[in-house]
Protein backbone atom coordinates (compact mmCIF):
# COMPACT_ATOMS: atom_id res chain seq x y z
CA UNK A 1 0.00 0.00 0.00
CA UNK A 2 1.16 3.53 -0.63
CA UNK A 3 1.19 6.26 1.97
CA UNK A 4 -2.11 7.74 3.09
CA UNK A 5 -2.71 11.48 3.05
CA UNK A 6 -4.43 12.65 6.23
CA UNK A 7 -5.74 16.08 7.19
CA UNK A 8 -7.22 17.77 10.26
CA UNK A 9 -10.62 16.58 9.01
CA UNK A 10 -9.72 12.93 8.40
CA UNK A 11 -7.30 12.48 11.30
CA UNK A 12 -9.85 11.04 13.70
CA UNK A 13 -11.27 8.56 11.22
CA UNK A 14 -8.02 7.53 9.51
CA UNK A 15 -5.61 7.61 12.44
CA UNK A 16 -7.37 7.53 15.81
CA UNK A 17 -10.04 5.04 14.76
CA UNK A 18 -7.84 3.00 12.43
CA UNK A 19 -7.86 -0.78 12.71
CA UNK A 20 -4.06 -1.03 12.74
CA UNK A 21 -1.14 1.09 13.99
CA UNK A 22 -0.56 4.30 12.05
CA UNK A 23 2.75 6.12 11.67
CA UNK A 24 2.00 9.79 11.02
CA UNK A 25 4.69 11.83 9.31
CA UNK A 26 4.26 15.56 9.96
CA UNK A 27 5.85 17.38 7.04
CA UNK A 28 5.86 20.52 4.91
CA UNK A 29 6.90 21.53 1.42
CA UNK A 30 9.72 23.82 2.58
CA UNK A 31 11.41 21.23 4.80
CA UNK A 32 14.49 19.63 3.22
CA UNK A 33 14.82 16.76 5.72
CA UNK A 34 11.11 15.92 5.17
CA UNK A 35 11.80 15.42 1.48
CA UNK A 36 14.72 13.15 2.35
CA UNK A 37 12.58 10.70 4.29
CA UNK A 38 9.62 10.77 1.89
CA UNK A 39 10.91 8.02 -0.45
CA UNK A 40 11.92 5.91 2.56
CA UNK A 41 8.40 6.13 3.98
CA UNK A 42 6.97 5.13 0.60
CA UNK A 43 9.11 2.00 0.68
CA UNK A 44 8.17 1.18 4.27
CA UNK A 45 4.49 1.62 3.42
CA UNK A 46 4.88 -1.10 0.77
CA UNK A 47 7.03 -3.42 2.84
CA UNK A 48 4.94 -3.28 6.01
CA UNK A 49 1.61 -3.16 4.25
CA UNK A 50 -1.06 -4.78 6.43
CA UNK A 51 0.87 -4.16 9.65
CA UNK A 52 1.18 -0.41 9.79
CA UNK A 53 -0.34 2.44 7.83
CA UNK A 54 2.09 5.19 6.88
CA UNK A 55 0.20 8.47 6.89
CA UNK A 56 1.43 11.91 5.89
CA UNK A 57 0.04 15.12 7.33
CA UNK A 58 0.97 18.45 5.76
CA UNK A 59 1.32 20.85 8.70
CA UNK A 60 0.63 23.91 6.56
CA UNK A 61 -2.69 22.60 5.24
CA UNK A 62 -3.63 20.99 8.55
CA UNK A 63 -2.18 23.06 11.39
CA UNK A 64 -4.54 22.08 14.19
CA UNK A 65 -3.49 18.42 14.58
CA UNK A 66 0.23 19.19 14.96
CA UNK A 67 -0.71 21.97 17.40
CA UNK A 68 -2.76 19.57 19.46
CA UNK A 69 0.10 17.07 19.72
CA UNK A 70 2.70 19.71 20.51
CA UNK A 71 4.62 19.24 17.27
CA UNK A 72 7.11 22.09 16.85
CA UNK A 73 9.65 20.58 14.55
CA UNK A 74 9.52 18.63 11.32
CA UNK A 75 9.84 15.99 10.27
CA UNK A 76 8.23 14.43 13.33
CA UNK A 77 6.94 10.89 13.18
CA UNK A 78 4.35 9.76 15.68
CA UNK A 79 3.07 6.24 16.06
CA UNK A 80 -0.59 5.84 16.98
CA UNK A 81 -2.09 2.66 18.38
CA UNK A 82 -5.72 2.33 19.43
CA UNK A 83 -6.27 6.07 19.22
CA UNK A 84 -3.27 6.93 21.39
CA UNK A 85 0.09 8.39 20.46
CA UNK A 86 2.43 5.66 21.70
CA UNK A 87 5.87 6.71 20.49
CA UNK A 88 7.53 9.48 18.51
CA UNK A 89 10.73 10.40 16.71
CA UNK A 90 11.90 13.86 15.73
CA UNK A 91 14.09 14.50 12.71
CA UNK A 92 15.09 12.59 9.60
CA UNK A 93 16.47 9.10 10.09
CA UNK A 94 17.86 6.44 7.75
CA UNK A 95 15.48 3.66 6.75
CA UNK A 96 17.15 1.07 8.98
CA UNK A 97 16.63 3.29 12.04
CA UNK A 98 12.93 3.78 11.27
CA UNK A 99 12.51 0.03 10.85
CA UNK A 100 14.38 -0.55 14.10
CA UNK A 101 11.99 1.81 15.85
CA UNK A 102 8.97 0.03 14.37
CA UNK A 103 10.40 -3.28 15.58
CA UNK A 104 10.99 -1.91 19.10
CA UNK A 105 7.43 -0.66 19.24
CA UNK A 106 6.15 -4.06 18.17
CA UNK A 107 4.71 -2.91 14.87
CA UNK A 108 6.95 -5.02 12.66
CA UNK A 109 8.51 -8.36 13.52
Amino acid sequence: MSTLKVTDETFERDVLKAGQPVLVDFWAEWCGPCKQIAPVLDQIAEELSGRVTIAKLNIEDSPSTPGRYGVRGIPTMMLFKDGQMSSMKVGAMPKAKILEWLTETGVSA
Partner: peptide
Protein backbone atom coordinates in the same frame (compact mmCIF):
# COMPACT_ATOMS: atom_id res chain seq x y z
CA UNK B 1 13.26 19.46 23.86
CA UNK B 2 14.52 18.64 20.38
CA UNK B 3 11.46 18.97 18.18
CA UNK B 4 9.51 20.61 21.00
CA UNK B 5 11.11 24.01 21.13
CA UNK B 6 14.73 23.26 20.25
CA UNK B 7 15.71 23.18 16.59
CA UNK B 8 18.75 23.45 14.33
CA UNK B 9 16.69 24.25 11.22
CA UNK B 10 14.95 27.61 11.10
CA UNK B 11 13.59 27.05 7.60
CA UNK B 12 12.01 23.75 8.69
CA UNK B 13 10.55 24.83 12.00
CA UNK B 14 10.15 28.62 11.82
CA UNK B 15 6.50 28.03 10.87
CA UNK B 16 5.70 26.96 14.43
CA UNK B 17 6.93 30.27 15.86
Amino acid sequence: FQGFGVSACATCDGFFY
